[in-house]
């Protein structure tokens, strides 16, 4: 293909991206580096403020825990799906994809019904006589985490199952024949072989949780803000546009750092697999 025609095909996309993404990002976020007395002072102030820091830490904590739970729940489930017959694999994959296609408002709303003070869990607990007054489950970090796990678990399952499907039964059988029980065979063979998929899933879940808006807004409420809800609050409620820009850039940097971190972790683990024990 001629270079010129290739350019013609690529240019429209690049122009729209430049005008509608890169330029706005630069124009809005770069000035935030220079506001205040010295370069980056807005960022220093952000991390000096205890309230801001708390929101930052909460966001990262929620993302870490959500990623952890999604891995613990998702990886074995993905393995289960990948070992099913073709028919069941289709059914279970559909059951996993269905929530992904359902709006996050609905999925968060589901947990309001379950965690609310008049919700399923509290009513069960009160009926059973375990508690007298409803527990405060909704509008807590716990609610955000469970809602986020609910939101992103299907993504982890589908991503990892896609990789595990390509691992033949003979791998497990070979490990068993060499004297590994099922759990060790899984940990020593299936898990390292699916690591690339687990890493991709981890990145998707972590960055997804880090930047999610709906779930923390609906399940965390105004008292348990995370960075994305905080941006909106700073800009729209308080009118602190510079503050919102600072938070925006922090979110982008954290996202990039996390992607980089996961990828280098993957590279390290891969090398370790090749070492002589």
């Amino acid at each position: 293909m001629k270079k010129r025609s290739a350019f013609v095909m690529i240019i429209p996309g690049l122009v729209i991206l430049a005008v509608c993404l890169f330029l706005p990002l630069l124009r809005v976020l770069i000035p935030s580096l220079h506001t205040g007395e010295y370069p980056l002072s807005a960022y220093v102030t952000f991390f000096q403020d205890e309230y801001y820091r708390k929101i930052f830490v909460r966001t990262v904590k929620v993302a870490c825990l959500t990623t952890g739970f999604c891995m613990v729940l998702g990886v074995p489930t993905a393995y289960f799906i990948s070992r099913c017959s073709k028919k069941w694999r289709g059914i279970l994959l559909s059951v996993s994809i269905f929530p992904m296609m359902t709006n996050s408002v609905i999925r968060s709303f589901a947990w309001i019904n379950i965690l609310g003070s008049n919700g399923l869990i509290n009513r069960l607990l009160i009926t059973a006589g375990i508690v007298e007054k409803p527990l405060k489950l909704l509008y807590t970090d716990f609610a955000i985490i469970i809602g986020s796990v609910y939101l992103f678990l299907p993504l982890m399952i589908v991503t990892v199952a896609g990789v595990m499907e390509n691992i033949g039964d003979d791998m497990m059988e070979a490990a068993l024949s060499l004297g590994a029980d099922r759990i060790r065979a899984f940990m020593k063979v299936i898990f390292p072989m699916s690591l690339p998929g687990i890493i991709v899933g981890g990145i998707l879940v972590f960055t997804g949780t880090l930047t999610a808006y709906t779930t923390p807004q609906l399940l965390g409420g105004n008292k348990n803000m995370v960075l994305s809800t905080f941006i909106y609050q700073r800009a729209m409620t308080v009118g602190d546009w510079d503050g919102a820009a600072v938070i925006s850039l922090i979110m982008i940097v954290v996202t990039l750092a996390v992607i980089k971190g996961f990828n280098s972790l993957a590279a390290r683990l891969d090398k370790r697999g090749g070492d002589h024990a």
Binding site: G168, D170, M171, E173, A174, A175, S177, V189, P192, M193, L195, D270, G273, G274, H276
Partner: peptide, 13 residues
């Protein structure tokens, strides 16, 4: 057991 596909572990030397 020697498998038809060999079933060598690709992540191990």
């Amino acid at each position: 057991i020697v498998f038809q596909s060999y079933a060598l572990f690709p992540h191990l030397s």
